[in-house]
């Protein structure tokens, strides 16, 4: 197979002329979650989860519907706070910084921790180019040459550049579903977040588009820490270095992917991956 353009993209050659940091080279765990519980009502949706997400690798979160995997993912960039009445206890550190410290603004957290959603959601009134650069423009970047460079780089990283380079002014929503999802990934990586969260990013895509997104995840982990929620266990085995299994809000097992699937330690994990429930 041809090496995709993303593998050769000169990520580190972009001189930092903006306030946005380059991807972190830190070897500490990206996320350090200690005893995290999240409540929407009295009953916890996530119950006492302690988990360390290694840097520059792909971590999958699997589990049956309603197990709290999406909720846990959303508390990693404080997106769960958009739900009225949501509460969270415990601590989450991103490379040592407490994300829930009182002086921390959630918008700053979300600039460090990018997110890709279940359904592609490009901004319908913006062109492809504008969709990719919107995050930078929100950060006050006005330098056109720099925006253009970052846009091309983000689109190359998302393996979309060759397909759209001649149509950059077309609306983002004129693309196919799979292309739209890669556009959303480009939009997220254009601001060079330290971590990328993905909430079932391929669940609305056909098999070909899914495999493109999975290839992309494999490419991105050279530069990024990725946490992906998926209901598709095959997908977890294909893309993830380590996998966490959630059940009824609790973290049941967290292990290297191969180990978790070949040699699960917990009976619930085994029951789930062998298809006895879920």
């Amino acid at each position: 197979m041809e090496p995709s353009p993303a593998t050769t993209a000169p990520v580190s050659t972009v001189t930092a002329t903006s306030a946005i940091p380059a991807p972190v080279q830190d070897t500490r765990p990206a996320f350090d979650a200690q005893n995290v519980s999240i409540f929407y009502t009295q009953k916890p949706a996530v119950d006492g989860v302690t988990l360390q997400v290694p840097s520059r690798s792909v971590t999958a979160i699997i589990g049956p519907s309603g197990c709290g995997k999406s909720t846990f993912l959303r508390c990693l960039n404080r997106m769960h706070e958009l739900v009225p009445g949501a509460r969270m206890t415990g601590t989450i550190r991103l490379y040592g910084d407490d994300l829930y410290a009182p002086e921390i603004d959630p918008t700053v957290v979300r600039r460090r921790v990018g997110m890709v959603f279940q359904k592609s959601n490009p901004f319908p009134t913006m062109s492809i180019a504008e969709n990719v650069t919107v995050g930078l423009r929100l950060n006050g970047v006005r330098d056109r040459a720099f925006l253009r460079e970052r846009m091309e780089q983000a689109l190359r990283m998302s393996a979309l550049w060759d397909e759209v380079k001649n149509d950059l002014n077309r609306p983002g929503i004129s693309l196919s579903g799979g292309q739209q999802q890669r556009l959303c990934i480009a939009r997220a990586v254009a601001v060079q977040p330290e971590v990328l969260l993905m909430d079932e990013p391929a669940s609305a895509l056909d098999p070909i588009a899914t495999s493109k997104v999975e290839e992309l995840i494999n490419d991105l982990k050279k530069n990024y820490t990725i946490v992906i929620v998926t209901h598709n266990m095959q997908q977890a085995t294909r893309v993830a270095d380590q996998t966490a299994f959630f059940y009824l809000g609790k973290l049941i097992e967290f292990a290297p992917t191969r180990e978790l699937f070949n040699n699960p330690r917990q009976p619930q994990t085994e029951a789930y991956i062998t298809g006895r429930f879920g």
């Binding site: 957290v109 890709v116 901004f123 929100l138 939009r187």
Partner: peptide, 29 residues
């Protein structure tokens, strides 16, 4: 306006005004 649009903007670290501007108003104009 779909919540997914708002989340897209929030996910980029937009403030409430920025979310309203880029995700809500432009969608609804």
């Amino acid at each position: 306006v779909p919540d997914l649009q708002r989340e897209a903007a929030y996910g980029l670290g937009a403030t409430r005004w920025e979310v309203t501007r880029i995700a809500v108003l432009s969608y609804a104009k």
